[in-house]
Amino acid sequence: MADDTILITGATGFIAQHNIIAALAAGFQVRTAIRSLDRSDQVRAYLAKGGAEPGDRLSFVETDLLKDEGWAEATQGCTYAIHSASSTPSGDYASEEEWIRPAVDGNLRLLRAARAAGVKRVVLTSAFGAIGAGKASPGRPFTEEDWSDLNGNIAPYQKSKTLAERAAWDFIAQQGGGMELATINPTAVMGPALGPDTSHSLMMLKGMLEGQPGQPRIQSCFVDVRDVADLHMRAMTNPAAAGERFLATSGEALWLADVAKILKERLGKQARKISTMQVSDIALKAKALVDPRVKGLLPLLGVDLSASGEKAKRMLGWNPRPPADAIEAAARSMIEVGLVDV
Score class of each variant (00 low, 15 high):
31 R>F: 00
31 R>G: 01
31 R>M: 00
32 T>V: 09
32 T>Q: 05
33 A>H: 10
33 A>C: 11
33 A>R: 15
33 A>Y: 06
34 I>G: 00
34 I>C: 06
34 I>K: 04
35 R>G: 01
35 R>T: 00
35 R>S: 06
37 L>K: 10
37 L>C: 04
38 D>E: 09
38 D>S: 13
38 D>I: 03
38 D>V: 05
38 D>Q: 10
39 R>K: 10
39 R>G: 00
39 R>T: 01
39 R>D: 00
40 S>N: 08
41 D>Q: 12
41 D>C: 04
41 D>E: 15
41 D>M: 09
41 D>L: 07
42 Q>T: 03
43 V>P: 09
43 V>I: 10
43 V>R: 00
43 V>W: 02
43 V>C: 01
44 R>I: 01
44 R>V: 00
44 R>F: 00
44 R>G: 00
44 R>T: 01
44 R>K: 15
45 A>S: 15
45 A>W: 05
46 Y>T: 11
46 Y>G: 03
47 L>H: 09
48 A>T: 02
48 A>M: 04
48 A>F: 02
49 K>I: 11
49 K>F: 11
49 K>G: 09
49 K>Y: 11
50 G>N: 12
50 G>T: 14
51 G>N: 08
51 G>K: 12
51 G>A: 11
53 E>V: 02
53 E>C: 08
53 E>F: 09
53 E>H: 09
54 P>H: 02
54 P>D: 02
54 P>R: 06
55 G>N: 09
55 G>F: 12
55 G>W: 11
56 D>L: 00
56 D>E: 15
57 R>G: 03
57 R>I: 01
57 R>N: 08
57 R>H: 13
58 L>Q: 01
58 L>A: 06
58 L>V: 00
58 L>I: 01
59 S>T: 11
60 F>R: 03
60 F>D: 00
61 V>K: 14
61 V>Q: 09
61 V>E: 02
61 V>A: 07
62 E>Q: 15
63 T>Y: 07
63 T>N: 13
64 D>H: 15
64 D>E: 11
64 D>V: 04
64 D>I: 06
64 D>Q: 14
66 L>K: 15
66 L>H: 14
66 L>T: 12
67 K>N: 13
67 K>G: 06
67 K>R: 15
68 D>M: 07
68 D>E: 06
68 D>S: 10
68 D>H: 11
68 D>G: 07
68 D>W: 03
69 E>V: 09
70 G>Y: 03
70 G>F: 01
71 W>F: 08
71 W>D: 03
72 A>L: 08
72 A>H: 09
72 A>V: 07
72 A>C: 04
73 E>D: 13
73 E>A: 15
74 A>F: 06
74 A>Y: 08
74 A>C: 08
75 T>H: 08
76 Q>N: 14
76 Q>A: 13
76 Q>Y: 12
76 Q>S: 10
77 G>T: 02
77 G>V: 03
77 G>I: 06
78 C>W: 07
78 C>S: 10
79 T>I: 03
79 T>V: 03
79 T>C: 11
80 Y>H: 13
81 A>V: 10
81 A>I: 05
82 I>C: 13
82 I>Y: 15
83 H>K: 12
83 H>R: 06
83 H>N: 12
83 H>T: 03
83 H>I: 01
83 H>Y: 05
83 H>M: 04
84 S>F: 07
